[in-house]
């Protein structure tokens, strides 16, 4: 085992090259709904077994299934009203189970990025051959059902191996959401190809806020606004990224959706916000900032070196 991920160097949030977004926006804002499928009777992964009741865990399973029957549509309506396209963190098997949901998202020109095959199949312990099969499955299925070429990746249930990000770069994935070390995109140290870390968020993630921080719906709306205001302020100097990761089974509950929509409308009501997708942020970053940042990282390394 290593004592450091080895994926990036220490790079303080001061004196960095200025990041700019289209039309002088201060914040690149994206919303990432996790559209997921949790199996009723998943196989055991020897490395990690999340706590739960004996199979069938009806409560756990049906709570998540709520997202695909009810929550996703409430969330979609709220996003439509605010003019926000989603970047979907997709359990790939959902293409097979619920193509009806995929179709509605595709109709809206939402992006699909990979969140593994099921949220109940973890990457821990996979051999390289298995991990390759897993990644190839994701590419093939998303292309087949949506015509899109995968650009982003969030490991299922945030489970990785040491080689995951290296493989993703090799397969041409442009951005990963698995790392939480920064509020700006950042080139990662990979051997082949290019890969950036994209600010996703644990702090703004509804599952963290509701289920781990145990916040109320209105408190969630409050922290979303506060997060945005700070990043908007800092974005006047150099562009920032704000992501809101969602889980339709949580935010799509009737008692939560209105407060969330108000917070969303507050953000999109600002002028200097680029309401966009993960792929578009990555593309812009590669085109305008990647090389400059890489040079800056190199000279930082030398001066620290």
């Amino acid at each position: 085992m290593k004592n450091d991920p080895g994926l990036y160097d220490y790079w303080p949030y001061v004196d960095r090259p200025k990041i700019t977004w289209p039309n002088g926006a201060r914040v690149a804002f994206w919303v990432a709904p996790n559209i997921e499928f949790y199996e009723l009777a998943p196989p055991i992964n020897p490395t990690w077994t999340p706590p739960g009741r004996p199979v069938p865990d009806v409560m756990y399973y049906s709570q998540r299934d709520f997202g695909n029957r009810v929550g996703v549509w409430r969330m979609m309506e709220a996003m439509d009203r605010c003019g926000v396209r989603g970047s979907i963190s997709l359990n790939i098997a959902l293409c097979d189970h619920h193509p009806e949901i995929i179709e509605e998202c595709a109709k809206r020109d939402w992006e699909f990025f990979s969140h593994g095959i099921y949220n109940t199949r973890f990457t821990y312990g996979m051999s390289e051959a298995q991990e390759r099969e897993f990644i190839e499955d994701a590419f093939a299925s998303v292309e087949k059902y949506t015509g899109q070429r995968l650009a982003g990746w969030l490991s299922p249930a945030l489970t990785n191996t040491e080689r995951t990000l290296e493989l993703l770069a090799e397969y041409g994935i442009k951005y990963t959401c698995d790392l939480f070390q920064d509020d700006q995109p950042q080139p990662l140290k990979v051997n082949s190809g290019r890969l950036i870390s994209m600010p996703y968020s644990l702090e703004m993630n509804d599952i963290i806020v509701y289920n781990f921080d145990l916040s109320s719906p209105r408190h969630y709306a409050k922290v979303i606004r506060a997060q945005f205001e700070q990043l908007y302020e800092e974005g006047a100097e150099s562009g920032t990224v704000m992501c809101i990761p969602l889980h339709p089974f949580l935010v799509g509950q009737a008692h939560r959706i209105a407060a969330f929509e108000e917070a969303l409308a507050y953000i999109t009501g600002h002028e200097k916000v680029w309401v966009t997708t993960g792929r578009e942020i990555a593309d812009w970053y590669y085109e305008h900032h990647y090389d400059t940042v890489l040079d800056a990282l190199k000279s930082t390394r030398q001066s620290q070196g």
Partner: peptide, 9 residues
């Protein structure tokens, strides 16, 4: 390595 069927669905 995970068992073969870990990637069968």
């Amino acid at each position: 390595t995970l068992p073969e069927d870990y990637l069968r669905y």
